[in-house]
Design a protein around this nucleic acid. Structure first.
Lengths: 244, 244
DNA sequence: CTATTGCTTCGTCCGGGAACGAAGGATGAG
DNA sequence: CTCATCCTTCGTTCCCGGACGAAGCAATAG
Protein backbone atom coordinates (compact mmCIF):
# COMPACT_ATOMS: atom_id res chain seq x y z
CA UNK A 1 0.00 0.00 0.00
CA UNK A 2 2.11 2.84 1.27
CA UNK A 3 5.32 3.38 -0.60
CA UNK A 4 7.19 4.52 2.46
CA UNK A 5 7.03 1.23 4.30
CA UNK A 6 10.58 0.28 3.53
CA UNK A 7 11.56 -3.27 4.11
CA UNK A 8 15.06 -2.29 5.07
CA UNK A 9 14.32 -2.22 8.76
CA UNK A 10 13.05 -5.77 9.04
CA UNK A 11 15.36 -8.74 8.89
CA UNK A 12 13.89 -11.03 6.35
CA UNK A 13 16.67 -13.59 6.33
CA UNK A 14 15.84 -15.21 9.68
CA UNK A 15 12.21 -15.54 8.71
CA UNK A 16 13.08 -17.09 5.40
CA UNK A 17 15.57 -19.38 7.11
CA UNK A 18 12.76 -20.86 9.14
CA UNK A 19 11.02 -21.95 5.96
CA UNK A 20 14.16 -22.78 4.04
CA UNK A 21 14.70 -26.16 5.62
CA UNK A 22 12.93 -28.95 3.72
CA UNK A 23 11.73 -30.64 6.87
CA UNK A 24 10.29 -27.48 8.32
CA UNK A 25 8.73 -26.67 4.97
CA UNK A 26 7.06 -30.07 4.99
CA UNK A 27 5.75 -29.46 8.47
CA UNK A 28 4.43 -26.04 7.55
CA UNK A 29 2.71 -27.19 4.41
CA UNK A 30 1.13 -30.01 6.38
CA UNK A 31 -0.19 -27.44 8.82
CA UNK A 32 -1.39 -25.23 6.00
CA UNK A 33 -4.47 -27.40 5.89
CA UNK A 34 -5.49 -25.53 9.00
CA UNK A 35 -5.96 -28.44 11.35
CA UNK A 36 -3.88 -28.76 14.49
CA UNK A 37 -1.62 -31.80 14.28
CA UNK A 38 0.24 -33.68 16.98
CA UNK A 39 4.02 -33.54 17.07
CA UNK A 40 4.35 -37.24 16.35
CA UNK A 41 2.06 -37.00 13.38
CA UNK A 42 4.13 -34.16 11.97
CA UNK A 43 7.30 -36.15 12.45
CA UNK A 44 5.77 -39.00 10.50
CA UNK A 45 4.54 -36.71 7.72
CA UNK A 46 7.91 -35.03 7.39
CA UNK A 47 9.73 -38.34 7.48
CA UNK A 48 12.04 -37.59 10.40
CA UNK A 49 12.50 -38.85 13.93
CA UNK A 50 10.48 -37.46 16.79
CA UNK A 51 13.56 -35.78 18.19
CA UNK A 52 14.26 -33.96 14.94
CA UNK A 53 10.69 -32.84 14.51
CA UNK A 54 10.63 -31.59 18.05
CA UNK A 55 13.66 -29.42 17.43
CA UNK A 56 12.10 -27.98 14.30
CA UNK A 57 8.82 -27.32 16.01
CA UNK A 58 10.62 -25.52 18.80
CA UNK A 59 12.22 -23.21 16.26
CA UNK A 60 8.97 -22.60 14.45
CA UNK A 61 7.32 -21.83 17.76
CA UNK A 62 10.07 -19.42 18.68
CA UNK A 63 9.74 -17.75 15.32
CA UNK A 64 6.03 -17.27 15.81
CA UNK A 65 4.99 -19.43 12.91
CA UNK A 66 3.08 -21.94 14.97
CA UNK A 67 1.33 -22.17 18.29
CA UNK A 68 1.01 -25.23 20.41
CA UNK A 69 -1.74 -26.48 22.63
CA UNK A 70 -1.16 -29.21 25.14
CA UNK A 71 -3.83 -31.80 25.48
CA UNK A 72 -2.80 -34.55 27.88
CA UNK A 73 0.41 -36.03 26.67
CA UNK A 74 -0.15 -34.82 23.15
CA UNK A 75 0.96 -31.46 21.83
CA UNK A 76 -1.03 -30.13 18.94
CA UNK A 77 0.70 -27.66 16.67
CA UNK A 78 -1.03 -25.32 14.28
CA UNK A 79 -0.17 -22.30 12.19
CA UNK A 80 -0.22 -19.22 14.35
CA UNK A 81 -2.44 -17.18 12.05
CA UNK A 82 -3.33 -15.91 8.63
CA UNK A 83 0.00 -14.12 8.18
CA UNK A 84 1.93 -17.35 8.44
CA UNK A 85 -0.31 -18.98 5.86
CA UNK A 86 0.06 -15.98 3.61
CA UNK A 87 3.83 -16.19 3.58
CA UNK A 88 3.72 -19.84 2.60
CA UNK A 89 1.28 -19.21 -0.18
CA UNK A 90 3.26 -16.36 -1.66
CA UNK A 91 6.41 -18.45 -1.60
CA UNK A 92 4.60 -21.31 -3.24
CA UNK A 93 3.30 -19.01 -5.94
CA UNK A 94 6.82 -17.94 -6.79
CA UNK A 95 8.17 -21.45 -6.53
CA UNK A 96 5.66 -22.71 -9.05
CA UNK A 97 7.15 -21.58 -12.32
CA UNK A 98 4.76 -19.67 -14.57
CA UNK A 99 2.87 -22.26 -16.62
CA UNK A 100 3.85 -21.01 -20.07
CA UNK A 101 1.30 -18.35 -20.81
CA UNK A 102 -0.06 -18.26 -24.31
CA UNK A 103 1.97 -16.21 -26.72
CA UNK A 104 -0.85 -13.75 -27.15
CA UNK A 105 -1.31 -13.32 -23.42
CA UNK A 106 2.34 -12.93 -22.65
CA UNK A 107 2.77 -10.50 -25.51
CA UNK A 108 -0.05 -8.35 -24.23
CA UNK A 109 1.19 -8.49 -20.66
CA UNK A 110 4.64 -7.62 -21.88
CA UNK A 111 3.33 -4.57 -23.68
CA UNK A 112 1.37 -3.38 -20.69
CA UNK A 113 4.54 -3.63 -18.68
CA UNK A 114 6.37 -1.51 -21.18
CA UNK A 115 4.05 1.45 -21.34
CA UNK A 116 0.46 2.13 -20.47
CA UNK A 117 -1.73 4.86 -19.14
CA UNK A 118 -2.64 5.20 -15.49
CA UNK A 119 -5.80 7.28 -15.63
CA UNK A 120 -4.41 9.98 -17.92
CA UNK A 121 -0.68 9.79 -17.36
CA UNK A 122 2.14 7.54 -18.46
CA UNK A 123 2.91 4.41 -16.45
CA UNK A 124 4.83 1.16 -16.87
CA UNK A 125 8.55 0.91 -17.47
CA UNK A 126 8.40 3.96 -19.70
CA UNK A 127 6.55 6.00 -17.10
CA UNK A 128 8.97 5.09 -14.37
CA UNK A 129 11.95 5.74 -16.58
CA UNK A 130 10.60 9.13 -17.60
CA UNK A 131 10.07 10.10 -13.99
CA UNK A 132 13.58 9.04 -13.04
CA UNK A 133 15.04 10.80 -16.03
CA UNK A 134 13.33 14.02 -14.97
CA UNK A 135 14.55 13.59 -11.42
CA UNK A 136 18.13 12.78 -12.32
CA UNK A 137 18.45 15.56 -14.85
CA UNK A 138 17.38 18.03 -12.21
CA UNK A 139 14.03 18.92 -13.72
CA UNK A 140 12.07 17.97 -10.65
CA UNK A 141 12.78 18.79 -7.03
CA UNK A 142 10.29 17.38 -4.60
CA UNK A 143 6.88 18.19 -5.98
CA UNK A 144 8.13 21.20 -7.90
CA UNK A 145 9.58 21.88 -11.32
CA UNK A 146 12.98 23.59 -11.36
CA UNK A 147 14.05 26.30 -13.77
CA UNK A 148 15.93 23.69 -15.75
CA UNK A 149 12.85 21.54 -15.87
CA UNK A 150 10.65 24.41 -16.95
CA UNK A 151 12.94 25.09 -19.92
CA UNK A 152 13.16 21.45 -20.91
CA UNK A 153 9.42 20.89 -20.71
CA UNK A 154 8.62 24.11 -22.52
CA UNK A 155 11.01 22.95 -25.21
CA UNK A 156 8.85 19.97 -26.04
CA UNK A 157 5.61 21.89 -25.72
CA UNK A 158 4.38 21.35 -22.17
CA UNK A 159 2.53 24.27 -20.59
CA UNK A 160 3.84 24.01 -17.06
CA UNK A 161 2.12 27.13 -15.85
CA UNK A 162 -1.18 25.88 -17.20
CA UNK A 163 -0.85 22.62 -15.32
CA UNK A 164 -0.03 24.46 -12.13
CA UNK A 165 -3.20 26.47 -12.29
CA UNK A 166 -5.60 23.57 -11.81
CA UNK A 167 -7.14 22.35 -8.57
CA UNK A 168 -5.55 18.99 -9.13
CA UNK A 169 -2.33 18.12 -7.35
CA UNK A 170 0.53 19.39 -9.45
CA UNK A 171 3.23 16.72 -9.68
CA UNK A 172 2.61 13.91 -7.19
CA UNK A 173 4.41 10.59 -7.31
CA UNK A 174 2.13 7.76 -8.32
CA UNK A 175 3.29 4.29 -7.35
CA UNK A 176 3.52 1.94 -10.29
CA UNK A 177 2.11 -1.50 -9.52
CA UNK A 178 4.28 -3.44 -11.89
CA UNK A 179 7.50 -1.56 -11.31
CA UNK A 180 7.08 -0.75 -7.65
CA UNK A 181 8.64 2.58 -8.32
CA UNK A 182 6.96 5.95 -8.72
CA UNK A 183 5.97 7.60 -11.94
CA UNK A 184 4.78 11.13 -12.55
CA UNK A 185 1.10 11.73 -11.88
CA UNK A 186 -1.17 14.68 -11.33
CA UNK A 187 -1.78 17.65 -13.58
CA UNK A 188 1.80 17.77 -14.79
CA UNK A 189 1.84 14.06 -15.54
CA UNK A 190 -1.28 14.43 -17.61
CA UNK A 191 0.09 17.46 -19.48
CA UNK A 192 3.35 15.72 -20.28
CA UNK A 193 1.58 12.59 -21.44
CA UNK A 194 -0.71 14.61 -23.68
CA UNK A 195 2.34 16.10 -25.38
CA UNK A 196 3.99 12.71 -25.79
CA UNK A 197 0.91 11.50 -27.64
CA UNK A 198 0.45 14.68 -29.66
CA UNK A 199 4.01 14.55 -30.90
CA UNK A 200 3.64 10.91 -31.77
CA UNK A 201 6.38 9.67 -29.44
CA UNK A 202 3.87 7.21 -28.06
CA UNK A 203 0.70 6.00 -29.68
CA UNK A 204 -2.17 3.86 -28.36
CA UNK A 205 -1.31 0.19 -28.67
CA UNK A 206 -3.33 -3.01 -28.71
CA UNK A 207 -5.66 -3.35 -25.75
CA UNK A 208 -7.35 -0.80 -23.53
CA UNK A 209 -4.54 1.05 -21.78
CA UNK A 210 -1.54 -0.06 -23.76
CA UNK A 211 0.84 2.44 -25.32
CA UNK A 212 3.66 1.88 -27.78
CA UNK A 213 6.89 3.78 -27.95
CA UNK A 214 7.43 4.85 -31.56
CA UNK A 215 10.79 4.97 -33.28
CA UNK A 216 10.61 8.73 -33.28
CA UNK A 217 9.86 8.73 -29.56
CA UNK A 218 12.77 6.45 -28.92
CA UNK A 219 15.10 8.78 -30.79
CA UNK A 220 13.84 11.97 -29.23
CA UNK A 221 13.73 10.72 -25.68
CA UNK A 222 17.21 9.23 -25.91
CA UNK A 223 18.44 12.63 -27.09
CA UNK A 224 16.53 14.44 -24.38
CA UNK A 225 17.88 12.29 -21.55
CA UNK A 226 21.38 11.07 -22.38
CA UNK A 227 23.02 8.57 -20.06
CA UNK A 228 19.94 6.56 -19.13
CA UNK A 229 20.79 2.91 -19.49
CA UNK A 230 17.68 1.12 -18.31
CA UNK A 231 14.99 3.15 -20.03
CA UNK A 232 12.93 1.59 -22.81
CA UNK A 233 14.24 4.19 -25.22
CA UNK A 234 17.88 3.39 -24.60
CA UNK A 235 19.76 1.47 -27.23
CA UNK A 236 19.03 -2.25 -27.15
CA UNK A 237 20.88 -4.14 -24.48
CA UNK A 238 21.58 -7.77 -23.87
CA UNK A 239 19.04 -9.20 -21.49
CA UNK A 240 19.70 -12.39 -19.64
CA UNK A 241 16.51 -13.98 -18.50
CA UNK A 242 16.83 -16.47 -15.68
CA UNK A 243 17.51 -19.98 -16.88
CA UNK A 244 14.38 -22.07 -16.71
CA UNK B 1 -8.39 -16.86 -3.72
CA UNK B 2 -9.49 -20.31 -4.63
CA UNK B 3 -9.40 -22.82 -1.85
CA UNK B 4 -8.29 -25.64 -4.07
CA UNK B 5 -4.94 -24.14 -4.94
CA UNK B 6 -3.01 -26.34 -2.60
CA UNK B 7 0.54 -25.40 -1.94
CA UNK B 8 1.56 -29.01 -1.54
CA UNK B 9 2.77 -29.34 -5.10
CA UNK B 10 5.25 -26.49 -5.04
CA UNK B 11 8.54 -26.75 -3.21
CA UNK B 12 8.76 -23.72 -1.08
CA UNK B 13 11.98 -24.62 0.72
CA UNK B 14 14.36 -23.88 -2.19
CA UNK B 15 12.74 -20.52 -2.77
CA UNK B 16 12.96 -19.62 0.89
CA UNK B 17 16.56 -20.83 0.98
CA UNK B 18 17.46 -18.25 -1.62
CA UNK B 19 16.31 -15.50 0.71
CA UNK B 20 17.46 -17.16 3.90
CA UNK B 21 21.09 -16.17 3.53
CA UNK B 22 21.83 -12.77 5.12
CA UNK B 23 24.03 -11.68 2.26
CA UNK B 24 21.47 -12.56 -0.38
CA UNK B 25 18.78 -10.92 1.72
CA UNK B 26 20.87 -7.74 1.82
CA UNK B 27 21.28 -7.85 -1.94
CA UNK B 28 17.57 -8.37 -2.48
CA UNK B 29 16.51 -5.60 -0.16
CA UNK B 30 18.96 -3.30 -1.88
CA UNK B 31 17.33 -4.18 -5.19
CA UNK B 32 13.89 -3.69 -3.73
CA UNK B 33 14.32 -0.01 -4.43
CA UNK B 34 13.70 -0.95 -8.02
CA UNK B 35 16.84 0.41 -9.54
CA UNK B 36 19.24 -1.86 -11.37
CA UNK B 37 22.54 -2.03 -9.52
CA UNK B 38 25.96 -3.18 -10.67
CA UNK B 39 27.45 -6.34 -9.20
CA UNK B 40 30.28 -4.48 -7.55
CA UNK B 41 27.92 -2.02 -5.96
CA UNK B 42 25.87 -4.86 -4.55
CA UNK B 43 28.99 -6.50 -3.16
CA UNK B 44 29.86 -3.28 -1.41
CA UNK B 45 26.35 -2.83 -0.05
CA UNK B 46 26.24 -6.38 1.25
CA UNK B 47 29.70 -6.12 2.72
CA UNK B 48 31.27 -9.09 0.95
CA UNK B 49 33.96 -9.66 -1.66
CA UNK B 50 33.17 -9.44 -5.33
CA UNK B 51 33.64 -13.17 -5.70
CA UNK B 52 31.12 -13.92 -2.99
CA UNK B 53 28.57 -11.51 -4.35
CA UNK B 54 28.98 -12.98 -7.78
CA UNK B 55 28.19 -16.45 -6.51
CA UNK B 56 25.11 -15.20 -4.74
CA UNK B 57 23.92 -13.29 -7.76
CA UNK B 58 24.35 -16.38 -9.90
CA UNK B 59 22.09 -18.30 -7.54
CA UNK B 60 19.50 -15.55 -7.46
CA UNK B 61 19.56 -15.42 -11.23
CA UNK B 62 19.11 -19.15 -11.47
CA UNK B 63 16.23 -18.97 -9.02
CA UNK B 64 14.52 -16.35 -11.13
CA UNK B 65 14.67 -13.64 -8.50
CA UNK B 66 16.77 -11.25 -10.52
CA UNK B 67 17.61 -10.51 -14.10
CA UNK B 68 20.86 -9.13 -15.38
CA UNK B 69 21.65 -6.73 -18.15
CA UNK B 70 25.15 -6.35 -19.44
CA UNK B 71 26.29 -2.87 -20.23
CA UNK B 72 29.92 -2.77 -21.23
CA UNK B 73 31.98 -4.35 -18.53
CA UNK B 74 29.29 -3.71 -15.97
CA UNK B 75 26.47 -6.09 -15.16
CA UNK B 76 23.40 -4.50 -13.76
CA UNK B 77 21.14 -6.67 -11.66
CA UNK B 78 17.53 -5.95 -10.81
CA UNK B 79 14.57 -7.75 -9.33
CA UNK B 80 12.94 -9.86 -11.99
CA UNK B 81 9.42 -8.60 -11.39
CA UNK B 82 6.58 -7.75 -9.05
CA UNK B 83 6.33 -11.29 -7.68
CA UNK B 84 9.85 -11.18 -6.34
CA UNK B 85 9.19 -7.86 -4.64
CA UNK B 86 5.98 -9.22 -3.20
CA UNK B 87 7.69 -12.15 -1.54
CA UNK B 88 10.21 -9.89 0.10
CA UNK B 89 7.55 -7.55 1.38
CA UNK B 90 5.42 -10.31 2.83
CA UNK B 91 8.44 -11.77 4.58
CA UNK B 92 9.34 -8.39 5.95
CA UNK B 93 5.83 -7.89 7.23
CA UNK B 94 6.03 -11.13 9.15
CA UNK B 95 9.55 -10.46 10.32
CA UNK B 96 8.55 -7.15 11.83
CA UNK B 97 6.95 -8.15 15.09
CA UNK B 98 3.42 -6.84 15.53
CA UNK B 99 3.77 -3.35 17.05
CA UNK B 100 1.70 -3.99 20.17
CA UNK B 101 -1.79 -3.15 19.10
CA UNK B 102 -3.89 -1.25 21.55
CA UNK B 103 -5.71 -3.41 24.04
CA UNK B 104 -9.05 -2.39 22.63
CA UNK B 105 -8.06 -3.19 19.06
CA UNK B 106 -6.52 -6.54 19.86
CA UNK B 107 -9.47 -7.48 22.02
CA UNK B 108 -11.87 -6.71 19.22
CA UNK B 109 -9.80 -8.54 16.63
CA UNK B 110 -9.55 -11.45 18.98
CA UNK B 111 -13.30 -11.60 19.35
CA UNK B 112 -13.88 -11.43 15.62
CA UNK B 113 -11.55 -14.34 15.26
CA UNK B 114 -13.51 -16.33 17.77
CA UNK B 115 -16.95 -16.03 16.29
CA UNK B 116 -18.65 -13.73 13.83
CA UNK B 117 -21.24 -13.80 11.13
CA UNK B 118 -20.40 -14.19 7.47
CA UNK B 119 -23.48 -12.76 5.76
CA UNK B 120 -26.02 -14.74 7.77
CA UNK B 121 -24.08 -17.77 8.93
CA UNK B 122 -21.52 -18.54 11.59
CA UNK B 123 -17.82 -17.96 10.85
CA UNK B 124 -14.56 -17.63 12.74
CA UNK B 125 -13.05 -20.31 14.91
CA UNK B 126 -16.48 -21.29 16.13
CA UNK B 127 -17.86 -21.58 12.62
CA UNK B 128 -15.00 -23.70 11.44
CA UNK B 129 -15.16 -25.89 14.52
CA UNK B 130 -18.89 -26.39 14.10
CA UNK B 131 -18.44 -27.43 10.50
CA UNK B 132 -15.72 -29.88 11.38
CA UNK B 133 -17.75 -31.25 14.24
CA UNK B 134 -20.65 -31.90 11.88
CA UNK B 135 -18.34 -33.55 9.41
CA UNK B 136 -16.54 -35.73 11.89
CA UNK B 137 -19.69 -36.85 13.64
CA UNK B 138 -21.07 -38.02 10.32
CA UNK B 139 -23.82 -35.44 10.03
CA UNK B 140 -22.61 -34.13 6.70
CA UNK B 141 -21.48 -36.06 3.66
CA UNK B 142 -20.38 -33.91 0.77
CA UNK B 143 -23.03 -31.27 0.37
CA UNK B 144 -25.74 -33.42 1.90
CA UNK B 145 -27.09 -34.08 5.38
CA UNK B 146 -27.06 -37.71 6.48
CA UNK B 147 -29.80 -39.43 8.46
CA UNK B 148 -27.67 -39.00 11.56
CA UNK B 149 -27.30 -35.35 10.81
CA UNK B 150 -30.97 -34.87 10.21
CA UNK B 151 -31.78 -36.33 13.63
CA UNK B 152 -29.13 -34.26 15.40
CA UNK B 153 -30.17 -31.03 13.73
CA UNK B 154 -33.86 -31.68 14.27
CA UNK B 155 -32.98 -32.27 17.91
CA UNK B 156 -31.82 -28.72 18.36
CA UNK B 157 -34.61 -27.26 16.27
CA UNK B 158 -33.25 -26.89 12.77
CA UNK B 159 -35.76 -27.40 9.95
CA UNK B 160 -33.54 -29.20 7.48
CA UNK B 161 -36.32 -29.82 4.98
CA UNK B 162 -37.23 -26.16 5.04
CA UNK B 163 -33.70 -25.13 4.23
CA UNK B 164 -33.54 -27.59 1.38
CA UNK B 165 -36.56 -26.09 -0.28
CA UNK B 166 -35.02 -22.73 -1.07
CA UNK B 167 -33.37 -21.68 -4.32
CA UNK B 168 -30.20 -20.97 -2.41
CA UNK B 169 -27.43 -23.54 -2.41
CA UNK B 170 -28.10 -25.96 0.39
CA UNK B 171 -24.89 -26.61 2.32
CA UNK B 172 -21.86 -25.23 0.50
CA UNK B 173 -18.47 -24.83 2.12
CA UNK B 174 -17.53 -21.22 2.66
CA UNK B 175 -13.83 -20.49 3.08
CA UNK B 176 -13.04 -18.65 6.27
CA UNK B 177 -10.52 -15.87 5.74
CA UNK B 178 -9.02 -15.93 9.21
CA UNK B 179 -8.96 -19.67 9.64
CA UNK B 180 -8.30 -20.70 6.06
CA UNK B 181 -10.62 -23.59 6.56
CA UNK B 182 -14.21 -23.97 5.47
CA UNK B 183 -17.29 -23.28 7.51
CA UNK B 184 -20.90 -24.09 6.76
CA UNK B 185 -22.63 -21.63 4.45
CA UNK B 186 -25.76 -21.56 2.34
CA UNK B 187 -29.32 -22.12 3.39
CA UNK B 188 -28.42 -24.75 5.96
CA UNK B 189 -25.70 -22.58 7.44
CA UNK B 190 -28.17 -19.75 7.85
CA UNK B 191 -30.80 -22.02 9.40
CA UNK B 192 -28.36 -23.47 11.89
CA UNK B 193 -27.04 -20.07 12.83
CA UNK B 194 -30.55 -18.77 13.38
CA UNK B 195 -31.18 -21.59 15.83
CA UNK B 196 -27.89 -20.97 17.63
CA UNK B 197 -28.95 -17.38 18.22
CA UNK B 198 -32.57 -18.23 19.10
CA UNK B 199 -31.49 -20.70 21.72
CA UNK B 200 -29.02 -18.20 23.16
CA UNK B 201 -25.94 -20.30 22.54
CA UNK B 202 -24.42 -17.32 20.81
CA UNK B 203 -25.43 -13.69 21.15
CA UNK B 204 -24.36 -10.57 19.25
CA UNK B 205 -21.15 -9.18 20.68
CA UNK B 206 -19.40 -5.83 20.56
CA UNK B 207 -18.91 -4.55 17.05
CA UNK B 208 -20.79 -5.12 13.81
CA UNK B 209 -20.42 -8.81 13.08
CA UNK B 210 -19.05 -10.12 16.34
CA UNK B 211 -20.71 -12.98 18.17
CA UNK B 212 -20.08 -14.31 21.64
CA UNK B 213 -20.33 -17.89 22.75
CA UNK B 214 -22.45 -17.99 25.91
CA UNK B 215 -21.84 -20.32 28.83
CA UNK B 216 -24.97 -22.19 27.91
CA UNK B 217 -23.76 -22.55 24.33
CA UNK B 218 -20.42 -23.79 25.51
CA UNK B 219 -22.10 -26.46 27.65
CA UNK B 220 -24.59 -27.57 25.04
CA UNK B 221 -22.17 -27.72 22.14
CA UNK B 222 -19.61 -29.64 24.17
CA UNK B 223 -22.31 -32.15 24.99
CA UNK B 224 -23.47 -32.30 21.39
CA UNK B 225 -20.01 -32.95 19.97
CA UNK B 226 -17.89 -34.86 22.46
CA UNK B 227 -14.25 -35.42 21.65
CA UNK B 228 -13.56 -32.09 19.98
CA UNK B 229 -10.38 -30.70 21.40
CA UNK B 230 -9.77 -27.54 19.48
CA UNK B 231 -13.22 -26.03 19.40
CA UNK B 232 -13.95 -22.83 21.31
CA UNK B 233 -16.49 -24.69 23.39
CA UNK B 234 -14.05 -27.34 24.57
CA UNK B 235 -12.79 -27.17 28.13
CA UNK B 236 -10.05 -24.61 28.63
CA UNK B 237 -6.67 -25.72 27.43
CA UNK B 238 -3.16 -24.51 28.02
CA UNK B 239 -2.10 -22.25 25.20
CA UNK B 240 1.52 -21.54 24.57
CA UNK B 241 2.01 -18.37 22.63
CA UNK B 242 5.33 -18.01 20.88
CA UNK B 243 7.96 -16.44 23.06
CA UNK B 244 8.46 -12.80 22.16
C1' DC C 1 2.25 -48.43 42.42
C1' DT C 2 4.48 -49.71 37.76
C1' DA C 3 4.22 -49.83 32.70
C1' DT C 4 3.49 -47.53 28.48
C1' DT C 5 3.14 -43.79 25.46
C1' DG C 6 4.31 -39.02 23.65
C1' DC C 7 7.40 -35.55 23.44
C1' DT C 8 11.60 -33.00 24.68
C1' DT C 9 16.61 -32.49 25.88
C1' DC C 10 21.38 -33.96 25.43
C1' DG C 11 25.45 -35.51 23.07
C1' DT C 12 27.45 -36.52 18.82
C1' DC C 13 28.42 -36.89 13.98
C1' DC C 14 28.63 -35.16 9.45
C1' DG C 15 27.56 -32.65 5.12
C1' DG C 16 26.38 -28.48 2.63
C1' DG C 17 27.39 -24.05 1.63
C1' DA C 18 29.37 -19.35 2.55
C1' DA C 19 33.57 -16.98 2.74
C1' DC C 20 38.05 -15.48 0.65
C1' DG C 21 42.32 -15.02 -2.52
C1' DA C 22 44.12 -15.95 -6.83
C1' DA C 23 43.65 -16.69 -11.50
C1' DG C 24 41.00 -16.22 -15.88
C1' DG C 25 37.93 -13.91 -19.56
C1' DA C 26 35.84 -9.61 -21.29
C1' DT C 27 35.57 -4.78 -22.16
C1' DG C 28 37.14 0.02 -22.57
C1' DA C 29 40.95 3.69 -22.18
C1' DG C 30 45.25 5.50 -23.81
C1' DC D 1 49.00 -3.05 -28.47
C1' DT D 2 49.07 -2.70 -23.42
C1' DC D 3 47.15 -1.73 -19.15
C1' DA D 4 43.30 -1.13 -15.95
C1' DT D 5 38.69 -2.28 -14.55
C1' DC D 6 34.82 -5.25 -13.72
C1' DC D 7 33.19 -9.53 -13.02
C1' DT D 8 33.35 -14.57 -12.93
C1' DT D 9 35.42 -19.26 -12.04
C1' DC D 10 38.36 -22.18 -9.29
C1' DG D 11 40.28 -24.14 -5.17
C1' DT D 12 40.36 -24.03 -0.36
C1' DT D 13 39.00 -23.53 4.45
C1' DC D 14 35.77 -23.55 7.91
C1' DC D 15 31.58 -23.39 10.54
C1' DC D 16 26.65 -23.70 11.08
C1' DG D 17 22.85 -26.55 11.75
C1' DG D 18 20.22 -30.80 10.73
C1' DA D 19 20.14 -35.75 11.63
C1' DC D 20 19.88 -39.60 14.93
C1' DG D 21 19.94 -42.54 19.44
C1' DA D 22 19.65 -42.53 24.25
C1' DA D 23 18.10 -40.66 28.25
C1' DG D 24 14.89 -37.65 30.83
C1' DC D 25 10.10 -35.77 31.91
C1' DA D 26 5.01 -35.70 31.86
C1' DA D 27 0.59 -38.03 31.56
C1' DT D 28 -2.61 -41.87 31.17
C1' DA D 29 -3.74 -46.83 31.82
C1' DG D 30 -4.16 -50.92 34.57
Amino acid sequence: MAADHTVRDADIAPVAALIADPTRAAILTALLGGRALAAGELARLAGVSAATASAHLARLLDGGFVTVLRQGRHRYYRLSGPEAAEVLEVLARVGARPPVRSLRQSRQARMLEEARTCYDHLAGKAGVALFEALRESGCLAGEEVTAVGERLLAGIGVHVAGARGTRRRFAPECLDWTERRPHLGGALGAAVTAVLLERGWFRPGAGPRALTLTDEGRRELAALFPGQVTAPWSKELTWHSPVT
